[in-house]
Design a protein around this nucleic acid. Structure first.
Length: 319
DNA sequence: TGCCAGGTGTACT
DNA sequence: AGTACACATGGC
């Protein structure tokens, strides 16, 4: 038996008129720290802000949220879950999809991802995670994040449904700022520059020089956000846009990576997507896609497309 | 074996 | 301004 006193039947049709794809939401790249329970493939476990959090998908419409604490951070659990799972974001993501796809069955493929949610993650964790995601595959990215948590994060031990768990929270900026370079390098796929870049960014956050709360102020333009973030070594336009999208709740931010570039060419016929992704080209592609997708939710929409492309076209199952 | 993976910084022309 | 290459390693 477990000690979990807070049990919430979270989603129902009153809260959302679209199904929520829990698995896809958690493992399509917003976070790399959730693990799947050995007992139940629809049960996901992580440590958020020092507290264990368990999500169980009963079906695509209903999610149970468990924790042994009443609050996550400064929010009651239910409020936190609503915010984290972006229940407030419902679209529309596309004006009229069928008008823009030259080829075939893409709109049909996309319907499977109607309920996929982009999550509101912690900005520091998001920054570190995507700094670890340069030109390498998902398994290595996930391993790096897990390593960083295991070596530098605080362990949280608890039991759930009779099973003992020891998981690690994401380390604080102060902790990573003080990390020994060699020790951090072992966590970042043996990449010295990456370890150094992560440590310097953590120092900036710890000192208050980089303030994600201020950066997330709604009146800041994406250009200003990108410019500030790109001032740090190891953060270019793509990673800056990822931090804005997943960490700052800026769902208009549209990161363009290798997969996005591919579907921009194949699905939307953007010729520049076939050329080298220079800084100028990157911005030009962003301008073009914003004329097709809802500009206020371009990044959110882009993530549905991203996920659909990886799963249905590239047949990539690595989370 | 060789290419691709949620890119970026640097050193060239 | 545009191109080539190093960085590091696992999967297919």
């Amino acid at each position: 038996m477990n000690k979990y006193k807070t049990v919430i039947r979270y989603m129902d049709t009153l809260l959302s008129d679209t199904p929520l794809l829990l698995f896809d939401s958690l493992f399509s790249g917003q976070t790399f720290r959730w693990i799947i329970s050995p007992n139940n493939k629809h049960c996901f476990i992580s440590v958020i802000q020092g507290s264990p959090v368990i999500l169980i998908a009963e079906d695509t419409m209903h999610i149970l949220v468990f924790s042994d604490t009443e609050t996550i951070g400064d929010k009651p659990l239910r409020k936190w879950a609503e915010h984290y799972l972006t229940i407030d974001i419902k679209g529309p993501f596309f004006s009229d999809v069928s008008l823009f796809f030259s080829s075939s069955n893409t709109p049909t493929l996309l319907m499977d991802f109607n309920g996929l949610k982009v999550l509101r993650e912690d900005p520091f964790e998001t920054a570190v995670t995507f700094m670890c995601a340069q030109g390498i595959g998902m398994p290595i990215i996930r391993r790096q994040v897990m390593n960083i948590c295991r070596v530098f994060g605080d362990a949280v031990t608890f039991s759930f449904e009779g099973n003992p768990y020891t998981l690690y929270g994401f380390p604080s900026p102060e902790r990573l700022a003080a990390a020994h370079p060699g020790e951090l390098r072992l966590c970042t796929n043996n990449n010295c520059a990456r370890a150094s870049n992560v440590r310097k960014m953590a120092e900036a956050v710890a000192s208050g020089r980089l303030d994600f709360r201020k950066l997330a102020a709604p009146e800041r333009s994406l250009d200003i956000i990108r410019e500030e973030l790109c001032g740090y070594d190891g953060i270019g336009p793509k990673i800056a846009d990822c931090i804005a999208l997943f960490g700052l709740g800026r769902f208009d931010a549209f990161p363009i990576d290798t997969h996005v570039r591919q579907y921009l060419y194949e699905w939307f016929g953007l010729k520049k997507a076939a050329m080298a992704l220079t800084a100028k080209n990157y911005m030009e592609l962003q301008r073009e896609i914003r004329t097709i997708l809802n500009p206020d939710l371009a990044g959110y929409a882009g993530h549905l497309l991203f996920h659909c492309w990886r799963k249905r076209v590239k047949r990539l199952d690595t989370a």
